[in-house]
Design a protein around this nucleic acid. Structure first.
Lengths: 249, 249
DNA sequence: GATTAAGAAATTGTATACAAGATGTATCCG
DNA sequence: CGGATACATCTTGTATACAATTTCTTAATC
């Protein structure tokens, strides 16, 4: 039945969900056209039941849309949609930071966050960032954002942020890969790191409004990255879910 | 198959989703304990397939939680969860108002919003509000909030707000019914109406920060209502989804 | 009497069969 | 030659059957 031993060998539904999401993000499925269940069943090697469960979940997640006559299609996103999704994430992370600042956090958890910032600092201060440095940066950056959300200590907010960041281009590390190909990348990373430091400071000093404003502006770096990346061919391909972006929004 | 003629006779999945949500909100299912599929199938008169689809959707919606060993249970909410859910809604509606203000809206759509405010004004200015007045207020208030979200003209934001307001006590009209039983109700409604007027003004004048701040504060009225209602026996029962609220949060 | 183990019942996850509607094609008529 | 209609195929939505795991019960042992 279920059986979630270790990491592999998950339920068929989860397998279908992960596999489908990957297919969508790599652009194997054209936005707007119906996802044929039978064809997908053959492709993924499972039955229609878990596939349909995955389709429902991905629709709720926002990656798919219902077709009025039945079935699902990959959703297309305009540049404005992506801009707004990033702004939504920034707004929610700002709320989390404000909650943390206003309500106070335990010193141990704040210490964890500080350690995370220190680790990021170490990566970023390398004079020439290699590809491996970027590879180390991404998970640590994600850890920072996850810890920040934890500090808010609110299940509903955690859920909403998870949902908002499930769209690939709205995720905190969404554009870091694409960013690596840009000449401005180092400068942007240094600014991002400044934000990381400042928001910790604001939370420690219980400056709610400041913590909120910093996280909002922090998310807007992703927006700048998006614009740069989309106007830079080499980089645009590395944007996650690039195939879902529809020109003419 | 599907067939969504008029309002009734929807698909079995939708029927299951609506029926289940109603059962949950009226407290027919105890939070924390597993929802037995077979028993529910008998109760709702449909098969397990559409029921499971409904369970998945309601889990994504946040009303249910997955049980590790399989199946779903009704989720319990602490008072803090509800407070935070309201704050999340206010934050997102604030973002919508800011978008509308900063980006500008067409005069025709702004006129619609103004008409809505005028209609609310007419209801609220009655010296003694009857139960029917409250009944007229609720849908019109919901229309106001829906129009405001439309003004932001962003599909991702619309989706997020729909999700955030799907929790009954986070919805804009969630506490209005409970409010009717409170002595402070009239005063609170007048303040709410002031917010309605002011946010339209702010949007018209393209004052983004002001529009945002007003909607945030507007949502906080619901929080005050929650506190009053929960400490007032007669009123607490009318809070939607009261059965999901767990003391000691 | 409490605790553990074994077995039985129940419950979920998955696969498949079936039915109703949608889509596309070919043919017939104007 | 264009358009509409009827038909065939395909697709989804639903119901049900099956298998594996979980959970409850019962009994045996310490």
């Amino acid at each position: 039945m279920a059986g979630e031993r270790d990491e592999k060998s998950q339920s068929q539904s989860v397998k279908a969900q992960l596999a489908l999401r990957e297919l969508i993000l790599e652009g194997a499925l054209a936005p707007g056209e119906r996802i044929a269940e039978l064809a997908m069943v053959d492709r993924l090697g499972l039955s229609r039941t878990p596939l349909r469960a995955a389709l429902i979940r991905l629709e709720q997640e926002g990656l798919l849309e219902e077709i009025p006559s039945g079935g699902y299609a990959v959703r297309a996103f305009s540049e404005a949609d992506i801009f707004n999704s990033i702004e939504i994430r920034g707004t929610l992370e700002g709320l989390a930071a404000r909650f943390a600042a206003e309500r106070g956090v335990s010193t141990t958890r704040l210490a964890e966050l500080k350690e995370c910032v220190a680790a990021l600092e170490e990566i970023v201060e390398a004079p020439d960032m290699s590809a491996e440095d970027f590879a180390r940066y991404v998970p640590m950056n994600e850890r920072f954002h996850a810890l920040l959300v934890e500090l808010a200590d609110s299940a509903p907010l955690t859920r909403e942020i998870e949902r908002a960041t499930s769209l690939p281009f709205a995720s905190p590390s969404g554009f870091v890969e694409a960013q690596a190909a840009l000449p401005e990348s180092r400068r942007i990373l240094l600014i991002a790191q400044e934000h990381h430091r400042l928001v910790v400071d604001a939370i420690q000093n219980r400056e709610g409004a400041r913590a909120e404003a910093i996280m909002r502006e922090h998310a807007r770096l992703a927006h700048r990255n998006l614009q740069l990346a989309l106007r830079n061919g080499a980089s645009a391909a590395k944007v996650p879910g690039a195939a879902l972006i529809r020109r003419r929004g």
